[in-house]
Design a protein around this nucleic acid. Structure first.
Length: 551
DNA sequence: ATTAACGGCGCG
DNA sequence: AAAGCGCGCCGTTAAT
């Protein structure tokens, strides 16, 4: 049963909707301040709470100590159904854009307020009507079960994201500050260059004979390097590493330490770590492929350098689990390539590929595989691709087919039906023009390059997107399995971090084994949800540690 | 003075 | 050690 919560002047209107979209009974009113109790009472029925934005509706409930089992996030589901080729032509896909399209309006932002006030409360703004349109679109499509799973997983992810923001990542400020002092020198106010960086800046200036040089300016650094007779195109570390010159070692050292200062220095600590927790916004569906994005503090880019500051509370542990070679395994399963699935059976998928004789060693297997998924044209990855295609025609065939579709501007879709839309008319016209004109013109080259780029995007989309679906199902299953692990004193394992193919659970020490079991069981369940009985393994690396740096 | 784009680098 | 894909955030620089 769906239970739709619609904001009303005095609180919320509650409407029950059955899975076929029919309204059951008459709507009731719940006053402000009574919603938490109401939700708690009704939770014995395991309703699917339905609202426009989990990120808006759920945090107040969490603050009141209320957890939700299941939900339907109308905004996230709208985004999927708008683009999915499975629901093309449905009412929800063809309706004019309204306030449910696009990002969650952030609370307090002026534009959000005015938008909300100005838009008429027509059917577009009615959550019940929207739910009915969404259910109808799914019911009428060719793969309703896949889409239902995707919408449920996306919505469960939204719950997990809100809970992770609520819990925060346990962060030890003392450890972090010790690390900063060791790498940069004593703390300095914002805008002042720390001692260690100042010393390195001096070395760089002397070595390049450029006393005024600002090492933070790529332009100035490039000019100074050229002034010293070095033939360089950029100031990227990867390029500089190939050069022999006294200025290079201090410059690389400067870049590394300066990055620590600007990305995760004292300023970051003051801004993002409150009460021993790093809390940031996770944005489910933030990436077209279905991966999450994050906003605030660079939560999905925590450098390995500082992960030792992620420290479990006394008496608690961190259970860190990541899925081994997730994307190639997903590709094997979605293409029905039993040979590649078999290569992953024993354990390491890349070693399994080596054992088939297709490639000479593990590194070759890895780069050839990644090359196939990303669309590498050069390097070792591109060179070994034919061998891989010979050994695993179904898997390689799937990404090649996606690439060809992308190059033609067609839509492509993941296993569960998330689609990257077809290219617009402008893009297609440019392609047609480029083909028709006989000469090798700049436009022609540009158009071909754009086509190849779109091909690489499409090739990657189907695999990355299906891997994201596996990860969402994993997360949803894990979240469910953690609930019964609550101890008598109320201490409960908490999901605190999710990074594409990796999860962190902060758990009381006596529960870590149960948590590790839950994480593994959830991975098995995710595999079955997506690929049924197809024989594919998704092995995990699971470690139980005090700090994330040990993982 | 504020905003947008760029170069660079962290993560998967 | 490597090139392909997807992101967010920093300081600098160019544009408004």
């Amino acid at each position: 049963m769906y239970v739709v919560l619609t904001p009303s002047p005095s609180g919320s209107t509650v409407t029950r909707v059955d899975p076929s979209g029919r309204v059951a009974g008459s709507p009731t009113e719940v006053g402000n301040g009574e919603l938490e109790d109401f939700v708690r009472r009704l939770s014995v029925e395991s309703p699917r709470w339905t609202w426009t934005d989990t990120a808006v509706a759920y945090p107040p409930l969490l603050d009141a100590g209320v957890r939700i089992e299941r939900c339907h996030d109308l905004r996230l589901c709208r985004a999927i159904l708008r683009n999915s080729t499975l629901t093309a032509g449905s009412e929800v896909a063809t309706a004019p854009r309204d306030e449910l399209d696009g990002e969650t309006p952030s609370a307090g932002s002026a534009s959000a307020q005015t938008l909300f006030d100005v838009l008429p409360a027509g059917t577009a703004g009615d959550p019940v009507a929207e739910l009915q349109r969404q259910l109808a679109a799914v019911a009428a499509c060719a793969e309703p079960n896949r889409l239902r799973l995707l919408l449920a997983a996306e919505s469960a992810g939204a719950l997990a994201a809100a809970e992770m923001r609520h819990a925060g990542l346990p962060w030890n400020v003392d450890r972090h500050e010790a690390l900063l002092e060791e790498q940069l020198g004593p703390r300095v106010p914002p805008g002042v260059r720390p001692a260690r960086l100042e010393a390195l800046a001096g070395e760089i200036r002397r070595a390049l004979d450029a006393p005024q040089l600002n090492p933070d300016s790529p332009q100035e650094v490039l000019a100074a390097l050229r002034g010293a007779g070095l033939n360089v195109q950029t100031t990227r570390s990867a390029e500089l590493r190939r050069i022999e010159h006294p200025a290079i070692p201090p410059l690389l050292d400067y870049k590394k330490r300066s990055r620590l200062l600007t990305a995760n220095g004292w300023n970051w600590l003051d801004t993002w770590v409150v009460g021993g927790r790093f809390s940031s916004d996770f944005l489910p569906g933030g990436v077209p492929s279905g991966r999450w994005a994050a906003r605030g503090g660079g939560a999905l880019q925590l450098p390995k350098q500082i992960r030792s500051a992620v420290l479990a509370d006394p008496g608690w542990k961190l259970v860190v689990a990541d899925a081994a070679q997730l994307e190639p395994r997903v590709l094997a399963a979605m293409s029905g390539d039993t040979a590649m699935a078999g290569a992953g059976r024993a354990g390491d998928l890349y070693e399994g590929i080596v054992a088939t004789g297709a490639v000479p060693d593990r590194n070759s297997a890895k780069y050839a595989m990644l090359g196939a998924i990303y669309g590498a044209t050069a390097g070792e990855g591109g060179r070994l691709l034919p061998k891989l295609a010979q050994a695993f025609p179904l898997a390689i065939g799937l990404v090649e087919t996606a690439a060809r579709a992308g190059e033609k501007g067609e839509a492509v879709s993941t296993r569960l039906g998330r689609s990257a839309p077809a290219a617009g008319p402008g893009w297609r016209d440019a392609q047609t023009l480029a083909v028709d004109s006989g000469l090798e013109s700049p436009e022609q080259r540009r158009a071909r390059s754009a086509a190849r780029e779109r091909g690489r995007f499409a090739r990657n989309f189907v695999v990355q997107g299906t891997a994201a679906e596996w990860a969402l199902c994993w997360l949803a299953e894990l979240r469910r399995r953690l609930v019964p692990l609550t101890a008598e004193d109320g201490a409960r394992p908490e999901l605190v971090y999710f990074l594409h193919d990796e999860v962190l659970v902060h758990a009381p020490a006596e529960q870590v084994d149960a948590v590790a079991d839950a994480v593994r069981a959830a991975a098995r369940a995710a595999g079955r949800l997506l690929f049924g009985e197809f024989p594919i393994d998704f092995p995990l690396d699971v470690v139980i540690v005090d700090d994330y740096g040990q993982a």
